[in-house]
Design a protein around this nucleic acid. Sequence first.
DNA 1: CGCGCGATTGAGTAATTTCAAATCTAGTGG
DNA 2: CCACTAGATTTGAAATTACTCAATCGCGCG
Lengths: 188, 188
Amino acid sequence: MHILRQQIQEITPLSDSEFDYILSHFTNKKIKKHQFLIQENDLVPNDYFVLSGFLKSYYLNQEGKEYIMQFGTQNWWITDYNSYFNQIPATINVDCIEDAEVLCLSLINREKLCSEMHKMEHFFRKKSNAGYVALQQRLLTLLNNNPRERYEKLVKQYPVLIQKVPKALIASYLGVSRETLSRFSLKK
Amino acid sequence: MHILRQQIQEITPLSDSEFDYILSHFTNKKIKKHQFLIQENDLVPNDYFVLSGFLKSYYLNQEGKEYIMQFGTQNWWITDYNSYFNQIPATINVDCIEDAEVLCLSLINREKLCSEMHKMEHFFRKKSNAGYVALQQRLLTLLNNNPRERYEKLVKQYPVLIQKVPKALIASYLGVSRETLSRFSLKK
DNA sequence: CGCGCGATTGAGTAATTTCAAATCTAGTGG
DNA sequence: CCACTAGATTTGAAATTACTCAATCGCGCG
């Protein structure tokens, strides 16, 4: 079954024709390693559902330091949500860590689906709620735990991530320097 | 006009009877200073819409240190969302900083409203999206800005908050010790 | 007047960052 | 199969930042 369909059906049942209709609102896109999906100051046309590969979204500050907002791998949605929802220029970059294929959903099509199909509005509400809760957890971890604890939590939660992604990116996600991360990522 | 109606109507129009129907799914509650709305390990029955007063939600760690998740004042919604949405025991506390009056919305009634009224599903989706974006911003501020910058941003964004709330709570929201906050909250 | 809470100040300490250098690793071409 | 290179990781040492603990201050209220 299509992995998007599967995700939606975890929240609400769908007939074949409904799913086909939904899918017709997405376009396909392939991205190569190091290619940008969104760059600062761009208008953000789409939310992206990841079919395969690996992406990251990150903020780049004045000094050129990068802070990873989120990773995107199979089944995840990724974009600059502030820019996407409010149709303002991007402040966040999204680029490709590993050749990827994504489904693109424009804001117009998202809203169209939501207004035409109560189910889809329901789906996106639930997804958004879950995302909100996950962000709250991350915020608390950031406030309450030291770098080492944050790292260990991440390893426990997404063991695959650690294998796949350079340590420097993990560090940036955790809000630590790569040197600090290195100093405790090996030794007990 | 009822401030809840006003908030909903910023997103979607509402007839008198529709709003009355919506409102019938809420119950009223008055809370006194220092009273808990939610305590760790409680089941969380409601999401709370603040009519007046001042509340805070916060995580209390093992060492008794408190981290403020959010403040709740007029027009804000507050609860332990993880516990509320997933109906699991609370890990966050919500209590009253200043005598308050809130509207209580049970999860059952929320879902009922959302399934009966597409409008309400739409409203809550939009609210959740906005909340998600706001949390992302806060996360980035936490990662990218030092305590002083975080404080100055907060002052700019919510000047009233600083007046109304003891500095120790501001510090806890910003993830800084009160002493550190004190050291730069005065001098330029 | 004195109590109590919130805010400030000071001194020492701990954690993390920064900068620089060394080391390791995987992939490439000879 | 080996040497070479670019990128990633580790290590060291110094500097910085914020924290902790303790003491003091300031002010409103009984």
